[in-house]
């Protein structure tokens, strides 16, 4: 056999210092964010303003609340494709139990605001519990289970509104979804609280540790006596409830409850988690990463509007960014593996 040319130096593993390799999944999204901000700052006069910062934060809030629950799920090396579906269904449920304007032709059941909210919370909890049951008791892979749930949730939404649009939600929901506390929209505050709570639970509690361990090596977690079924059930329910709350606030934020209004949020929330660097293989990443991912997507979406780009091209660009994030995600995993052999 002839001599193989020296091509190993082309592989970045050679030159990259160890500290950077192990932090690749944290550094890459942060660097992307800085680069995007720099680019839009230079390319547009209207991008860098306090008002626009408020816009960006408001735009990512609904996604942010959904992404909190999804982070738990992805850390366990599972996936939840029903987040947007459950958000839509829960938003419609809360409107269904609220008095609507006479012009709205929905056969709804008006209840007190608190009762409507409780019923909505209970519905997303139940949908999450069904996901959990299918995954941990029947043994349906989460990808398929939540795909079915996506359809079921869409069905519930369709049955309740029957093609109509509802506008009114309980006052608590509409305050949190569409009003501001001083200059800060309530929805941003709620999203921040959810992100903070998610971070605290994942980092500082036993449950959070079990989530990482279950995602890192499920068999080892089982042999360590961790009740992985309970952990997986819990993350599916957390994801559904986060989605439900995002759905209720989203309805208030959009000002209407109707079929299919959350459709783009499935891809957005998964993108946020993955672009942020949380490993698709489980066990690595966290809410910090998700915040980075949310900001990257938020700045990107918002910035593209400021530079008058073809709105159809915008869709393509988002796809390319997601692909790049996936490449980095898988690559970061590999870097860590080479480092640890």
């Amino acid at each position: 056999m002839s001599e193989i040319p020296e091509t190993a130096s082309l592989m970045p593993t050679r030159r990259m210092p160890g500290w950077l390799r192990s932090r690749m999944r944290n550094v890459a999204p942060f660097a992307t964010l800085i680069a995007l901000i720099g680019f839009f700052w230079a390319a547009s006069d209207s991008f860098a303003s306090v008002g626009n910062l408020q816009n960006i934060l408001t735009q990512i809030s609904v996604t942010g609340i959904m992404a909190v629950g999804l982070t738990f799920v992805i850390l366990c090396a599972e996936i939840d494709l029903s987040v947007a579906g459950i958000a839509n269904a829960t938003g419609i449920v809360v409107a269904f139990f609220t008095t609507q304007d006479a012009s709205v032709g929905i056969a709804n059941v008006p209840l007190a605001g608190w009762a409507a909210i409780c019923i909505a919370l209970a519905s997303c909890f139940v949908l999450g519990a069904v996901n959990a049951f299918g995954l941990t008791r029947i043994g349906i892979p989460s990808f398929i289970m939540t795909l079915a749930m996506l359809q079921i949730a869409a069905g519930i939404s369709a049955l309740l509104v029957r093609g109509q649009i509802a506008y009114t939600v309980p006052s608590l929901v509409s305050t949190l979804g569409s009003r501001s506390l001083g200059p800060v929209p309530w929805i941003v505050i709620v999203a921040a609280i959810f992100l903070l709570a998610g971070h605290v639970v994942l980092t500082y509690t036993r449950f959070g540790r079990y989530v990482y361990m279950t995602g890192g090596n499920r068999e080892a977690a089982e042999y360590s006596g961790v009740n992985t079924r309970a952990i997986l059930s819990a993350v599916m329910i957390i994801s559904a409830v986060c989605s439900g709350i995002a759905g209720m606030l989203g309805v208030a934020y959009f000002g209407s409850a109707q079929q299919n209004e959350f459709d783009t949020y499935l891809l957005d929330s998964i993108s946020a988690v993955v672009v942020g660097g949380t490993s698709l293989f489980g066990g690595q990443g966290g809410i910090g990463n998700t915040i980075m991912g949310l900001l990257v997507l938020g700045v990107l979406n918002n910035g593209l509007d400021h530079i008058n780009i073809d709105s159809f091209l915008k869709i393509l660009i988002r796809g390319v960014i997601l692909l790049a994030a996936l490449v980095i995600n898988v690559y970061a995993q590999r870097l860590q593996l080479t480092r640890s052999t």
């Binding site: 540790r209 079990y210 361990m213 890192g216 090596n217 690595q284 640890s340």
Partner: peptide
């Protein structure tokens, strides 16, 4: 070993997983 250890996690987390509660 693969059946009970978490390669990416630090040594101490591997040791205390059974007694966290």
């Amino acid at each position: 070993r693969k059946m009970m250890l978490f390669g990416a996690e630090p040594v101490y987390k591997n040791m205390t997983i059974t007694i966290l509660d």
